[in-house]
Design a protein around this nucleic acid. Structure first.
Lengths: 134, 134
DNA sequence: TTAATTCCTACTAATTTACTATGATTTATT
DNA sequence: AATAAATCATAGTAAATTAGTAGGAATTAA
């Protein structure tokens, strides 16, 4: 039950973009890689997922880069982590038809735990996170 | 960020033992394996961890088996999952000295998320779980 | 003495994660 | 038009973790 590097790095990227948030400027992967200490190539893949989920917006070509698709106060940490961490689902069987062995009282626990985690992470905006107001 | 099979199976075992809780009777691994659909050999390893953590108590020899070390209302789901799921720690870097790259605002988030998960799971006793009163 | 059980520990197969690598495409700048 | 700086797309691989399998020793009730 570890948060993956993918999700952690993705959040780091979001934090860096939030710190540099502006209507006009974009940030290159090269700079994000430098700030986060993650390779450019790996970040590209992670950012691609975030782009697809409309968390970041890209400008292609020379002097292109990435920016947040919305203002930091309008993006929750939950929004970001869900797209990078398999919808923040703690166990797979919740939505599966697990006829065998799946103990239903435990299953209810997983559902509640999921709700707990998601609703907590949804209360925190990227803005709050960068201002360290948790 | 998936709960491991180890932790899930361990909780299933705890639920089965809670359902059969009595001062005198013990339950064999063979029966637990049958109820949970997990192999005896794998359950043995999982139960060994739970025994070491004083969650279950063992009686060796013929007609031996396992029982809960405490009453179901005195064991929390958090108690069980922590011993099976690396102390329910969502990221490793929290207690490490991560000089490079570790973005501290994110780190605070992991700490809070951990607290959130642990405190939720600590409010739920095995008794509540088996009575499905979440 | 036997059979039923827990206990101990080494090994292995499968899966997932975390990258690396290559190159195409796009676009501002000169 | 050429160049350079950037994103985009996708295949491959190495490392780590997870999830078991396997064999047998130790214990104890019957």
């Amino acid at each position: 039950m570890k948060m993956s590097s993918k999700a952690r790095y993705g959040l780091y990227v979001a934090v860096e973009l939030a710190n540099r948030y502006s209507d006009t400027e974009v940030v290159s992967v090269a700079l994000l890689a430098q700030c986060t200490g993650v390779t450019e190539k790996y970040l590209e893949q992670i950012i691609a997922i975030m782009k697809k989920a409309n968390i970041v917006h890209a400008i292609r070509g020379a002097s292109g880069g990435y920016k947040l698709a919305k203002a930091p106060q309008d993006i929750s940490v939950g929004d970001i982590l869900r797209v990078l961490e398999d919808n923040l689902q703690i166990v797979d069987c919740i939505h599966k038809d697990c006829a065998n062995g799946c103990n239903c009282v435990s299953r209810n626990l997983w559902v509640k735990l999921n709700q707990n985690i998601n609703s907590y992470l949804d209360t925190i905006s990227l803005q709050q996170l960068v201002e360290d107001k948790l």
